[in-house]
Design a protein around this nucleic acid. Structure first.
Length: 308
DNA sequence: AATTTGCTCAACCGCGATAGG
DNA sequence: CCCTATCGCGGTTGAGCAAAT
């Protein structure tokens, strides 16, 4: 069954020959393409207009970038795919010189496998069920985290990542506070007196926050309880001792340049975002969202999986 | 050396949206 | 409005190649 636009003509299909490419390039560069359906007739090609348009946009256009995708391009694709899903044309708009077809092929042949090998569902970017820990007392199906136990207020937890190229984020917001961060681990504390929610819900809010931040970079992350860690300033549940140590820790963190919007009288720290150590590209996400707003109704925002 | 398997990617297919008569 | 042609997009196919058996 041929294309409707050219069913009456005798059309050639399959791979394009260099001669056909020449004819098409010559015609488009001198005359442009007001109507693709008329291009083959005037260019002297036994092809349908649809085939000509595809050949031009995916292969012959002079502004196309050739060669393999860079690591940066790969990160951009993953980041935007997490927000928009399989909207290849939209994703390609953020990659100059790349076509939707190219992005789609790269996703299906490379990125998809990479995410699966990291235990992530390439469609949802969440942890695959086969990778969840069986003995977990609580598993959030929307989270990439494996929780070793219920998170308790005033207990200390550690975020570990398998991906050395991505620092665990230091932007986990209430009801938690970052205690320390290095390339592979982020230690944080669940604070009881900032948001009062049932423990299970608190666990979910926290893990979703981290999940939203981390998963777009395709890393596998686990949360483990750290209450008995001897080095932990949160190891003791002693209120007064804890408060004194919080203030000490606060001073240390301020020295590192961390920005806290508020430190309350109890010494609890409310994070206001401190992104400089994260490789997560908020500027990119903002631009994606802005471009989506330009071309869609406001209702479209509801469709975005965007719940920071 | 012959065959099978797996992978990549250009091209095709079909559908929804849009434009124009 | 309705109809038809065209465009643009996402899913799918299959030719061509390389690696594995």
């Amino acid at each position: 069954m041929g294309h409707r636009c050219c069913s009456k003509q005798k059309i050639k299909r399959g791979l394009w020959s260099p001669e056909e490419d020449d004819k098409l390039v010559t015609y488009i560069t001198t005359h442009g393409h007001k109507s693709w359906s008329s291009v083959p007739k005037f260019a002297g090609l036994q092809r349908c207009g649809k085939s000509c348009r595809l050949r031009w946009t995916n292969y012959l256009r002079p502004d196309l970038k050739r060669g393999s995708f860079t690591a940066e391009e790969e990160h951009i694709i993953i980041d935007i795919h997490r927000i928009l899903g399989n909207r290849w044309a939209q994703i390609a708009k953020h990659l100059p010189g790349r076509t939707d077809n190219e992005v789609k092929n790269f996703w299906n042949s490379c990125i998809k496998k990479k995410l699966i090998s990291q235990g992530l569902d390439p469609q949802t970017h969440n942890l695959l069920s086969s990778h969840k820990r069986n003995n977990s007392s609580y598993q959030n199906s929307n989270s990439i985290f494996i929780l070793s136990s219920q998170m308790q207020p005033n207990a200390n937890y550690l975020v570990e990542t398998t991906n050395q190229t991505f620092s665990p984020p230091n932007i986990i917001q209430t009801p938690s506070t970052i205690v320390s961060t290095n390339q592979y681990q982020t230690s944080f504390n669940v604070i009881s007196n900032q948001i009062c929610v049932p423990e299970q819900e608190q666990t979910q809010i926290l893990s979703e926050n981290i999940s939203n931040i981390c998963s777009s970079s395709g890393l596998v992350t686990t949360v483990v309880e750290m209450s008995k860690n001897e080095n932990s300033i949160w190891g003791s549940r002693d209120e007064e001792g804890t408060q004194a140590q919080v203030m000490k820790e606060k001073e240390k963190m301020c020295e590192k340049g961390m920005d806290f919007s508020e430190i309350n009288e109890k010494g609890d720290i409310e994070m206001n975002g401190c992104f400089e150590n994260s490789k997560f590209d908020f500027g990119l996400l903002e631009s994606v969202l802005n471009s989506e707003f330009i071309s869609h109704d406001l209702d479209y925002m509801d469709e975005l999986a965007w719940n920071f």
